[in-house]
Amino acid sequence: MEIIKNLYKKIGFPRLIITVFLIMFLISAVGLGLSLPDLLTDIINRFGMNAIMVLAMVPTIQAGTGINLNLALGVIFGLIGALVSMEMGLQGWNSMIVAFSIAIPLAIIAGYLYGLLMNRIKGQEMTVGNYFGFSIVSLMCIFWLIAPFKNESLVWAMGGKGLRVTLTLEDSFGSLLNDFLAFKIAGVKIPTGLLLFFAICAGLVYLFTNTKTGTALRVSGSGEKFAVSNGLNVDKYRILSVIISTVLAAIGIIIYSQAFGFLQLYNAPLYVSMPAAASILIGGATLKKATITHVIIGTFLFQGLLVVALPVINIVSEGSMAEIIRITISNGIILYALTRKAGDTA
């Protein structure tokens, strides 16, 4: 009994529930005649697509600015990077490298400015971040309309004005990483490049958290007074965390888009933060503590559930169930984290 109790404590209620659901859905999926290799392919692909966005939550949680509900900021500069490289008509690796090299410096500047704001509103980061993100996205909607892009594949062919809502990446860097060194094993397609890229990003973040600077960043978040009394400039590390998070979000959307095959503009970046926040919380992070392990477990469980639940529910029911399930789970888990006392794990 004691062992079960301890195990339960270690796994935690939310992860237990999600895992049970995932297994139940997997069994019923196979029972309903869905192809297991196809499902696994999908899970792995979606894991790779989303994991960097979830990784972007790590630095801000560690530095005490909490869940970054303003990933949209980084996403927007990722989109701009991609747009510029498409405007230039670049293809293949070139287009991706140019997209990164435009997106990253912009994200650094934006992250720095946003970090300054975060330091002036300590204690309200999540609420402000959320609405700041919404405002930026809606402001950018106007920008997409009037932005001076000329390339025919970007703007509406006729009649319309401004950039299209969805842009195909076929000619630039679509599925570039997904196909890189990809192979099939037992009917499951492994997108080696995609996974490798995430591994590199996660490795870098992991390495960083173990450096002196990364340690100081973590200390700033886990005890502000302790940090100050040990000579740390807490505000500086908070800004640094926001910069890293914003840059990761910018990289994240480029990776997501290349796997998805399309660039989504206008209102699409509105809700990028919520699933990412939910993923890392499902993975075992709290509003104050997060590690790479939480990212990997959380992304896998969350995306896995979505991938498996969608066809199963669509067979038994109808309508936009997948979306509803996504909303309910992701907001439910964030709610759960918000109402926990400090020190408890989610």
Binding site: L117, I121, T127, V128, Y131, F132, F134, S135, V137
Partner: peptide, 9 residues
């Protein structure tokens, strides 16, 4: 959105 964000800030 902006007015809410602004008020919260």
């Amino acid at each position: 959105y902006g007015v809410i964000g602004f008020a919260l800030i």
